[in-house]
């Protein structure tokens, strides 16, 4: 909707939220459609949609956490462990519901441990969660014993099914994004997050239960990692070494930061995060389609990151 607005109304770029980001995204989509026929191909678009759905769920949790001045680098590792455990359980014949409950429960526990460390000791979130991230990546490899574990058709309804022509994964992601956006804007818990990220001392003095809120936020980040893990497993139908992990984590962090959420806390929107996730997803896909060597792919992703970040900053900090 705002994309249309950008094109039709007399453009006042400074007024439209994330206008710079939107412009870059539209530019890349136009470029891709012109350069390759396969980009607008239905199967390709469905594929991109499934991929970005997983990232979007992680990024949603991360946005809320970062707004509160927190950081979780272990979400990718959490995804790896969740997929590994779920894959083992399903391949050993455990019921699907039990697998899901165990996996999500486990991921919440990981999140709460992160939260407890960050809240009750003075270890910086960056350090604490980077440590858990490394630890979790190792645990994931242990669980699948370094092999690829297939789950056959167990979760194919979620992973490859569609409703009204859209992948089911997209609906899950959309629901998560909508709920998080609502929480951030219309609940005291969400506003508390902004207050804590803005100035933790003031938040505490104003009667906000900062420690409890932080614990819940890290738990929530864990829970959403678990959900993303299940989604990823259902899409790939197998858990292998390297599923999830740091690569996924960095994509999510990049998407959130590109979307304008402040690393220092206190500022951020789900709308920006959605744009960031889409941008990174589309760029990765286009580079694949153009059959560009993976070396250049990395270079281009980095370049896009920089351009988007600068476009964002130029908009927000132009000298008045």
């Amino acid at each position: 909707m705002s994309a249309v607005a950008t094109l039709t109304r007399p453009v006042r770029v400074g007024k439209i939220p994330h206008a710079g980001l939107l412009l870059v995204l539209v530019g890349i989509i136009v470029f891709a459609s012109v350069r390759t026929d396969s980009f607008l191909n239905t199967n390709n678009l469905l594929n991109v949609a499934r991929q970005v759905s997983v990232v979007a769920v992680i990024a949603a949790g991360l946005t809320l956490l970062m707004v509160a001045g927190g950081m979780d680098f272990s979400m990718g590792g959490n995804v790896a462990v969740t997929t590994a455990v779920a894959a083992q359980m399903l391949s050993h014949g455990y019921a699907t519901w039990l697998t899901l409950v165990t996996a999500i429960g486990l991921s919440i526990a990981v999140g709460l441990v992160n939260g407890a460390v960050v809240t009750f000791t003075n270890v910086a979130p960056f350090v604490a969660t980077l440590a858990t991230a490394t630890l979790l990546d190792g645990v994931a490899l242990l669980v699948i014993n370094g092999m690829s574990i297939s789950i056959d058709e167990h979760l194919s309804g979620l992973g490859s099914g569609t409703t009204f022509g859209l992948p089911n994964l997209v609906f899950v992601a959309a629901a998560v994004l909508a709920v998080v956006a609502f929480v951030m804007r219309y609940t005291s818990f969400g506003r508390d997050a902004f207050a804590i990220g803005g100035n933790e001392d003031v938040a505490r003095l104003s009667g906000i239960t900062v420690s409890r809120d932080k614990l819940v936020l890290y738990g929530l980040a864990g829970a959403l990692s678990g959900l993303a893990g299940i989604m990823l497993l259902s899409r790939l139908a197998a858990s292998s070494p390297g599923t999830g992990g740091l690569q996924l984590q960095l994509t999510a962090v990049a998407a959130v930061v590109i979307g304008g959420t402040s690393l220092a806390g206190g500022k951020g929107t789900i709308g920006g995060t959605i744009l960031g996730v889409l941008l990174l997803g589309v760029v990765a896909n286009v580079l694949n389609l153009l059959q560009i060597s993976s070396y250049y792919q990395q270079i281009s992703v980095g370049a896009v990151l920089l351009i988007a970040a600068i476009a964002n900053l130029l908009q927000s900090s132009r000298k008045r």
Binding site: R191, A195, S206, K267
Partner: peptide
């Protein structure tokens, strides 16, 4: 120790009362 700079006037005014 007093205000949250990035939040609006209204939110800051009601910050304690709402909690």
């Amino acid at each position: 120790l007093g205000l949250i700079p990035g939040l609006t006037i209204d939110e800051n005014v009601m910050l304690a009362q709402d909690r």
